[in-house]
């Protein structure tokens, strides 16, 4: 067995050491995307109701997105300390932009005539949002969610800088050992693909009308 080589035997024997980092990685990704989704949703509804706030809110998430990622994990340390919380804050902040943009686009894309007929039939603004605008924005919202999830899986590999572990730590610890890099990296890819197809399945189930065609 070469020192730097790829060794399936080693992988099988050392599988255990990847279990914890993997679930840490899953936790970091899912929690930050879920929190990010909730924050983006609130921001999107506010921006939708008050058009003047649209620019500033999207702009804010843009600024957060432009912070170099390794720096973000380190910048928070003086405030929230070394650990998972810092990592989650950074990852959540990164996820906002893609999701907010897609939600805003989705809500703005609901045709005027549909809103007019909804109001004309006596839907309140709240009913309009929940029964018409949000359902019709779902394809866009899901698109944003997918981008945010996949991006966060990638960014979470740097979470170890804030001391939150994850698969990035496994990669970093033995970066010259091929078997290690392949397994840890491979698990990242697998997680991204799994999340993406999970969200796609949810999207398909919740938007059957997008596949309706004149027969």
């Amino acid at each position: 067995m070469a020192e730097n080589g790829f060794c399936p035997e080693w992988i099988v024997q050392n599988w255990d050491r990847y279990v914890d980092p993997f679930f840490q990685h899953v936790l970091l990704t899912v929690v930050s995307v879920v929190i990010g989704f909730a924050i983006a949703a609130v921001m999107a509804v506010v921006a939708h109701r008050r058009r003047r706030l649209n620019g500033p809110l999207v702009g804010l998430t843009e600024v957060l997105y432009t912070i170099p990622s390794p720096a973000a994990f380190l910048l928070l340390l003086p405030f929230t300390g070394f650990g998972t919380v810092s990592a989650l804050i950074a990852l959540t902040a990164y996820s906002l932009n893609a999701m907010l943009r897609s939600m805003v686009t989705g809500l703005a894309g609901v045709p005027e005539d549909i809103k007019d007929s909804a109001r004309g039939m006596g839907l309140t603004e709240r009913q309009l949002l929940w029964k018409v605008e949000l359902p019709l924005a779902l394809p866009e919202i899901f698109a944003g969610l997918r981008i945010a999830s996949v991006t966060t899986v990638g960014l979470a590999t740097l979470a170890f800088l804030a001391g939150a572990g994850g698969l990035g730590e496994s990669i970093e610890s033995q970066i010259s050992f091929k078997s290690n890099v392949v397994v840890a990296g491979g698990l990242c890819v697998l997680l991204a693909v799994a999340l993406d197809s999970l969200i796609r399945t949810l999207q398909k189930a919740s938007t059957p009308w997008t596949r309706a065609r004149l027969t």
Binding site: D113, I114, S117, G120, M121, L123, W209
Partner: peptide, 22 residues
């Protein structure tokens, strides 16, 4: 209220405005 009023009055527009997701 406008909402109560509108529920009592039929409303048809040129583009129909059916809800595509329903």
């Amino acid at each position: 209220t406008p909402y109560e009023l509108r529920r009592e009055i039929g409303y048809v527009i040129q583009q129909v405005g059916l809800f595509p997701h329903l």
